[in-house]
Design a protein around this nucleic acid. Structure first.
Lengths: 259, 259
DNA sequence: CCCAATTTGTTCGTATGTATA
DNA sequence: TTATACATACGAACAAATTGG
């Protein structure tokens, strides 16, 4: 016999909102709140349907949406799990640089610097925060096949990453997004990037070993968490002499945002 | 009483293939073959389900996939239609340049040149064809708010676009993808782009009115048709002084390819 | 190796709601 | 108003994958 679990409220009135959307929202809230943690199995479908007081089909419809948004993953015969960030997912969804001949591989990341600083105007705007707020600025060099190809500057608002030190950053076992998730409860689910071509500035030129002024690709990214709020600002500089930024225009948009 | 319509075969044996995938494939084939043309309404769901000999739920599942891939569109109360290329869709799915302050608008397109030529090695490789095949090369200048921002070079294999003349190109009412679809039965559904930063070459510099060698963004795109075959090769050069190439990393991949 | 329990995946059928013409 | 078509919701049955005995 399973533990007798509480009935889950779907949310007050749902004004015209389809039932499955209400269920989805409720599930999302439970995930955001940490009640169902990443990696953890959710109750099974019939169980959840029972608790929500909806049919299995309706419950499945709600979960379908979460699966499409990479927020949960289903495994036949095993269960449904709150999605964890993996190196694979990071590579696939957030790392777009590959060699011009199509060779794709994980970059080797070197830490260049880790500083406490304050948000400049651009970072503040991107993060929807006030300029001058305490922040962390972390620089990396990324190598592909030994070649220095990308310079990354990551800017994090300090109040979201309390207790983050250079050592913890350095010693993280996986990707930085895995670190955000496991150590700070921040799950990055989507991002917006803006790209432009510029002449390499001194920092990038030094870190990447190219001449200042040489054309490089600059990628500005703001990463958004589960709750839709921006949590990371990043400027990547890419040497595109032998590498490209690839973009597949074959993906699909989320149906309804709910955020 | 409806006309008594033929039973639709789903496809011989379906070895382990779920029924809804077989139905989807069958629908796709009918669309590719032109049996159901763009803009045209498909038979309604119960009708289709009946003809395929499956339940409405299964039929809907198949159509769901096609909707997700933008191959058909559903309109409640009206019907399900084979998708047509529209200016909106083109802008949203295939045009990624906007002003750095976020202003997004349709570009004004000027024809610069229209030539008959032959596939060079790079174009041939991208199009999976042999170098030297007859082709059309068409150059454009795109303006945003009056500013020349993009230079486009479109390369089309002549055998797919028989009878395409400069006049027909010039006189098309909508986007070029609408032209491909309505005049040549070619529906572009997805594309792959590779981006790099380079110094502006002479052509681009002339067309865009920038100094040669100035950093510009170069976008190489191969566009794929419904059947998955490449049909267009394009190199765009973007002046990113006041504009960005934007990319939303929030979209989702297609489940199973079927192609 | 096989069997049984568990969980998601697929398919069916039906009823009712909502948007459109 | 009426008819049509898609949208939502329900419930049930069986298939397929996984795990553990």
């Amino acid at each position: 016999m399973k533990t007798p679990l509480a009935v889950l409220p779907i949310g007050r009135d749902l004004g015209g909102l389809p039932l499955y959307r209400a269920v989805k929202r409720s599930l999302l809230q439970r995930i955001e709140s940490g009640e169902m943690a990443p990696g953890q199995a959710m109750p099974n479908e019939t169980e959840l349907a029972l608790r929500f007081g909806v049919s299995v089909g309706t419950l499945r419809r709600a979960v379908d949406d979460l699966v499409a948004e990479h927020i949960v993953v289903r495994r036949q015969g095993r269960g449904t799990f709150v999605a964890t960030h993996t190196a694979d997912r990071f590579l696939f969804q957030f790392f777009h640089v590959e060699r011009s001949d199509g060779l794709r591989e994980a970059p080797v990341v070197e830490l260049v610097s880790f500083e406490r600083t304050r948000l400049d105007d651009e970072a503040a705007e991107a993060l929807a925060l006030k300029p001058g707020l305490q922040a962390l600025a972390i620089d990396h060099r990324l190598r592909l096949q030994g070649k220095a190809v990308v310079h990354d500057r990551v800017v994090l608002p300090a109040h979201l990453f309390r207790g983050l030190t250079e050592k913890r950053w350095r010693d993280r076992p996986g990707t930085v997004y895995q670190l955000y998730q496991s150590e700070f409860g921040i799950t990055v689910v989507r991002a917006q990037e803006r790209l432009r071509a510029v002449g390499a500035d001194r920092t990038a030129a030094r870190v990447l070993g190219v001449a200042a002024g040489q054309p490089v690709l600059q990628v500005r990214r703001v990463a958004l968490a589960l709750n839709g709020l921006p949590v990371e600002w990043r400027i990547s500089t890419v040497v595109t002499a032998q590498h490209d930024y690839v973009n597949l225009l074959s993906r699909h948009e989320v149906r309804g945002s709910d955020r």
